[in-house]
Amino acid sequence: MSEFKQTFNSSLGKKLIMALTGLFLCTFLIVHVGGNLLLFNNDNGFSFNVYANFLTHFPPIEVIAYLLYLSILVHALYGLILTVKNRKARPVGYAVATKSDASWSSKNMGLLGSILFLFIVIHMGDFWYRYHNDKNMGFKEYRTDLATGVTTVADYTPANAEFSHSVATENNVEIVRVKDLHTRVATSFSNIIYVLFYVIAMGAVAFHLLHGFQSAFRTLGWVHRKYTPIVYFIGTWLFAVIIPLAFAAMPVYYYYLSTQGAH
C-alpha cells in the first residue's frame, strides 16, 4: 500500500490523477450534453424532466454521480496542489515574460480550471441542489394519449411532501408526474447575466479541454505516431468545439425563447 501512496505522491503520480479524473469528466460531458440536448425538444420539458428524474433515481447512475463529484473535487484539489508546487519551483520569476511557443490554453489551465470550478459550484447549486432540496420546486403532470401520441401538460401538486415521481396508465393514457426542472432551467436562462456567465464558462471549457484532453493522453504516456493525431482531432473538434457549443447554445436558445414570450 505504501508503494501506491508513494506513487501517487510523486510528481508523475499526481499528474496521473489529474489525467484520469480529467478524462473521466470528459466522458461525463458527452453523457451530459447528450441528455441535455433534450432541452431542445419542444415538448414543454417532458423528455428533459423524465431524463432528470431518471438520472437521480437510477442507482448505478447515482453511484457514478458520486464518483463524478469526487472526481471534480480531486481534480480541482490536485490542480491546486500542483499549481502551488509549480509556483514554488520558480520562486523568482522573469522580468521579461516568457515568449516561448506554447498555446495560451496550456499556460492557463489553472485560470481556466478556476473559472470552471466556480461555474460548477453555481451550476450545481442552481440545478442539482435545488432539484434535490428545494421544497418549492414544482411538479408537472404529462398525460400522453397512447392512441394519438398527443401529450398535454399541467402543473401538479403532490399529495404529500415525500412524493418524487409516478408513472401510471389509465384508459390508454399514460400519466407521468415528475419534478419540473425544466421550468427552473427556463427561468434561469431568461436572465441575460446568467446566460453570459454560462457562455463564458463554456468558453473556458473549450480552452480547458483543447489542451486538457490531449494532455491527459500524454500524461498517461499514450502517445503514438498513428493514434495521437486522432486524439488531437477528438480533443479539438469534439471537446473544444462541438460540446462547448452545444452547451452554450442551451442558455442562448432559452434566452431567445424568453424574449419571444413563448414561455
Binding site: S11, K14, K15, L82, K85, N86, K88, A89, R90, T98, S100, D101, A102, S103, S106, K107, M109, H211, Q214, S215, R218, T219
Partner: peptide, 8 residues
C-alpha cells in the same frame, strides 16, 4: 515543477 505539457 510538474509537467503540464505546454510544450515550451
Amino acid at each position: 515543477g510538474n509537467c503540464t505539457n505546454t510544450g515550451a
